[in-house]
Computed example of a mutant assay.
Amino acid sequence: MLTKKQYELLMFIHERVRETGIPPSFDEMKDALDLKSKSGIHRLITALEERGFLRRMEKRARALEIVKLPENMAETLRPAQTRSQAQRMSPGHRTRGTAADARGAGSPRRPMGEAEGAINVPLVGRIAAGTPIEALQNKLADVPVPSGMIGRGDHYALEVTGDSMINAGILDGDTVIIQESDTANTGEIIVALVDNNEATLKRLRRRGDSIALEAANPAYETRLYGADRVKVQGKLVGLIRRY
């Protein structure tokens, strides 16, 4: 039997992962449940673990595996499903390097090569989840992506290099799926083109007339730019990890 707050937190995590592919941060969970401190979230997560509803993935920031939902919501999830959900947590054209014309924020991760109901998306290069690197734009290959991960508009894939987004569940070597867009809401993970020649994968924050590109790793500082120096090239909509 879950308390009201335990139930609300479990449902919030479940819906966020299902809709965006990225688990909520502790701050987001705190705000959603209207708690005054993150210590309350830690206690709720521990209680959900003890009751068998959640499992924390070792050595992975923000990786919460949903083991089961309350009986009145859904039957117990299969391990393969929940592992995929946990690894994709939290919640994007063309050759090796990042994508200058990259345009793309979170859906379920699936193993690469899973072609059932898949749509081919062009893999167009590497994107730096760290210090921005030179952007290139040449198609390298096609990546089969589950159709449920793809929404409206055009999409492309990028290979992630670096570890600045690990607390958003995005690891070095992951493949991110990006939805082309030249606009994004604050808080979304985007492909940002800086000064028309460097692309990076970061969380967008708007601060007055400036734009902050925020890492999800305390080892990296948030970079602040004038709005005219940053162009949104796309939003993260999915992530695929190879094992």
Score class of each variant (00 low, 15 high):
Thr161Leu: 05
Gly113Tyr: 04
Leu48Phe: 02
Tyr225Phe: 15
Arg206Pro: 01
Met1Leu: 08
Met57Ala: 08
Ala157Asn: 05
Ala115Phe: 11
Ala129Gln: 08
Val191Asp: 03
Gln6Val: 00
Met165Gly: 07
Asp182Ser: 00
Pro24Gln: 15
Ile150Arg: 01
Gly106Tyr: 14
Leu64Arg: 03
Leu54Thr: 02
Ile178His: 07
Glu65Ala: 04
Gln85Trp: 06
Leu201Val: 08
Gly106Cys: 11
Pro122Asn: 02
Met57Gly: 04
Arg229Cys: 08
Lys68Phe: 02
Val160Leu: 00
Arg94Met: 05
Ser39Leu: 14
Asp163Met: 07
Tyr225Gln: 01
Pro23Cys: 07
Thr131Cys: 09
Asp182His: 03
Glu75Thr: 06
Leu171Asp: 14
Val160Asn: 01
Gln137Trp: 12
Ser39Thr: 12
Met57Thr: 09
Ile190Tyr: 09
Ile170Cys: 01
Ile170Lys: 05
Lys202Asn: 11
Thr20Asn: 03
Val124Arg: 09
Leu54Trp: 01
Glu114Phe: 07
Glu19Ile: 13
Ala47Cys: 05
Val230Tyr: 01
Arg96Asp: 02
Glu75Cys: 02
Leu171Met: 13
Asn185Gln: 12
Gly97Arg: 13
Ile13Val: 15
Arg55His: 13
Thr3His: 13
Ala47Phe: 01
Gly104Thr: 04
Gly113Ile: 01
Leu44Ala: 00
Ser107Gly: 11
Ile13Arg: 04
Gly234Asn: 08
Ser90Val: 03
Ala168Gly: 11
Lys30Glu: 15
Ile150Gln: 07
Glu180Ile: 00
Ile119Pro: 00
Gly148Asn: 14
Lys38Phe: 05
Thr131Ala: 15
Glu116Arg: 09
Ala61His: 14
Gly234Lys: 09
Leu204Phe: 06
Ile166Glu: 15
Gly21Ser: 05
Ala61Arg: 14
Asp228His: 12
Arg51Pro: 03
Val143Asp: 03
Gly226Lys: 12
Leu236Asn: 00
Ala61Pro: 09
Glu19Leu: 15
Arg94Lys: 12
Arg83Leu: 08
Asp31Met: 11
Arg16Glu: 06
Arg55Tyr: 13
Gly125Asn: 00
Asn120Ile: 15
Glu65Pro: 03
Arg96Leu: 07
Met1Thr: 11
Lys30Cys: 15
Asp34Gln: 07
Lys202Arg: 14
Gly151Leu: 13
Asp101Phe: 04
Ala157Leu: 07
